[in-house]
Write a protein that binds this DNA or RNA. Sequence first.
DNA 1: GCAGAAGTGTTGACTTTCAAACAACCTGGT
DNA 2: ACCAGGTTGTTTGAAAGTCAACACTTCTGC
Lengths: 297, 297
Amino acid sequence: MDEGQRTVRPETAADAAAHEPAPGTGAGPASDAASGQENAAMRYTRAAGRRAHILERVQASGFVSVADLVADLGVSDMTIRRDLRRLSADGDVRVVRGGISLPHATLRTSEFISRAHSSAEAKKRIAARAAELVHEDDVVAVDAGTTTFGVVAHFPPAFTGTVVTHSVPVIQQLLHLPGARVVGLGGELYPPSQAFVGATTVEQAQRLRMRLFFLGAAAVDERGVYVEADVERATKLALMEPADEVVLLVDAAKFSSTAPVRLCGLDRLTSLVTDERPPARVARELERHGVHVTTAD
Amino acid sequence: MDEGQRTVRPETAADAAAHEPAPGTGAGPASDAASGQENAAMRYTRAAGRRAHILERVQASGFVSVADLVADLGVSDMTIRRDLRRLSADGDVRVVRGGISLPHATLRTSEFISRAHSSAEAKKRIAARAAELVHEDDVVAVDAGTTTFGVVAHFPPAFTGTVVTHSVPVIQQLLHLPGARVVGLGGELYPPSQAFVGATTVEQAQRLRMRLFFLGAAAVDERGVYVEADVERATKLALMEPADEVVLLVDAAKFSSTAPVRLCGLDRLTSLVTDERPPARVARELERHGVHVTTAD
DNA sequence: GCAGAAGTGTTGACTTTCAAACAACCTGGT
DNA sequence: ACCAGGTTGTTTGAAAGTCAACACTTCTGC
């Protein structure tokens, strides 16, 4: 480093000439420096625009570093830092070492997603494998639940089909799949599964038809599939009915769990995706009903 | 600092005795050191538990610093850092200087909320003032839109009523209002407003009744209220119909905007909350129809 | 015009974080 | 007992981020 003083200072084209008009006033973004045509009138409106850009950045990705902003906006790190301090005083962002993140309140993707990490590894593998069943132009329904939630994240990036769901986290996730058409089922929010349930939900489901339904459950044994509550049962059944294929996603723990409400028998399933081979008795029964079992390892 | 060597090392109770059993093995969280009873069998299962805790933290708040985790978990910064590297390799978090944040994909509260900051100050004030109209045990509907979105954040913390909405961001926000009963209207997702619209949505709205409806709009003049698209119009009308009071929330910019679709006349409004006094012609017309105008300053 | 206000860039000293290398330690198997 | 493999704490030097003070430029109001 010949002129290497310290760290992240911006280096626009006006670098060779050390003390030129460039320093002193914000030289503007790199593009300006190159084109050289800059309206003097807009110079001092820039601070506000910069802060807007910073907010966009942090809200888009949850965190931006000072260095990134310096590169983006073509101003010095000190200027960025002063903007940050101001934004933080307004409560819009939280300043942390090296950059900013969203303030506590804004974010909170909620306990739901954190629960999704209880057996994160297994669920991730299951979800990835299940997502392989989805065609780019497909009509699929996605159940509420942590495992099924993961499937959406593994959808093909070029997905242009339709997704039906009553799960709030799934809807939220789908906002970022630009090509997808999303049909949401309304109803009353049932907090334990963060999904809409009730008569209205069932009614809406009955009007639909889809090729695939990714089903979640609380427990599975050789006699059938079980869930935690009756309200869940009604909604799940309503979504199974109009689906050509029902794919059950469960991690291995579900084979040794119990849950109070019986959803249906194993004969209602088309396939099952899990992370370990099911116990012998369950496996035998699955085979008897022609359920296709996929083990994601 | 008498023993001040460097930085953030943990300082449990076993601090005075320099080279004791404590260093070398993870001494466990501070509580363990105090109670002293620790099961030897679980010692080396701790790494996984630590990583789970870290995930919870970051998912709860969007960012955690290494220093925080050191204090929380009572291990050295290097250990934390090693955990972080591993989590980041799994794609669960993003390591940034000083800590971790959620990875790009997980978060993305989307452009929507960032748009909410276009005239952030004004909208925040409007939202706060409008939220004062809400009783603790109330039935209110919330329209899609950046301004109306803000209202939910200002609901009384002890709110135990019912909220009806077709807006995804609003639903998401309501997940964190534990007392609230949430009725979501399903339908087809309309990306520009991140809300559900269509015949199904309208139909569901027609079955409801609420005391208050917080309405958003793209433009207002003395002849009425305007929105951007026809699909929005149908949904908004369907929510106005069953509401005892219709409260329109608009920032002052909307008085000088134009939008192509006429929603309704000013006579359909009960109140209007804005940040600057409306232009004379609009104000006169509002008064003529008995619309109560609140200016949030 | 001119003085003050506001916005920036620069410098230099300081603090915090990072990573590699090593040593100490636990656990499980032979 | 002892060794291999994994986990943790410590040291150390380098890299990165932070802050206050100062100098300069442009804008605003008089």
